[in-house]
Write a protein that binds this DNA or RNA. Structure first.
Lengths: 100, 100
DNA sequence: TACACATATCGATAATTGTCGATATTTGCA
DNA sequence: TGCAAATATCGACAATTATCGATATGTGTA
């Protein structure tokens, strides 16, 4: 990981809601209801649930999730009309090591 | 560590120069000359050296260092008219764990 | 005490980010 | 095929951050 990458990740984390999303996604079962169409959390959580929990607007959360995926913090998987997001543990570990 | 604290730390890290300062201070002997008045790096590096290496203005670096100390990333020690800054490894570790 | 050097603070302005509502796009289903 | 739900994008404006030069404050020394 280089400085630029680490700075982009830090930018994503430098906002309360985005930081909380990272926390929420650490334990999806505890923070979100089971999804209508899928009975597991293997691909994370549906964007709508994150949007509802956040209490911010849909467009804001869509932007957040996109930027978090762009910097590598999240992985997105599409299932039909739903987008699922989960933590990218590999890059989180890499980032943590980079700081030490 | 709580969300608020982690977000403040992230804000400090979300800037290239500040991120580099964290790197530079990981190995002071490799990145800075020995200081005129002290022959060790036990308390870190003199603010002037950081300012010179950064190529930003003195006021900007002074602000950076102050905010980095305020959020806990750096520890400042005064020796006469000089301020020395070093990494606060404890909080960095705590932050890294918080993310995982 | 007065000067010189190190650092901090102030005030300004440019640049970036936060956040929204409106609208566009994608996709499944009646 | 056409509507409805999920998500993405756009354009706008407010809020925050970046960064500077000027100046103030603190501190050691001639």
């Amino acid at each position: 990981m280089d400085v630029k990458e680490a700075v982009e990740i830090s930018k994503c984390l430098s906002n309360k809601t985005r930081m909380q999303i990272m926390e929420w996604l650490r334990e999806p079962e505890k923070n979100f209801p089971p999804h209508v169409s899928i009975d597991h959390f293997d691909d994370g959580v549906c964007a709508t649930y994150i949007f509802e929990k956040s209490r911010l607007s849909q467009s804001t959360i869509s932007n957040y999730l996109t930027s978090m995926e762009k910097c590598g913090l999240l992985v997105m998987t599409r299932h039909g009309k739903w987008s699922y997001f989960k933590r990218n543990e590999a890059i989180i570990t890499e980032f943590a090591k980079y700081l030490l």
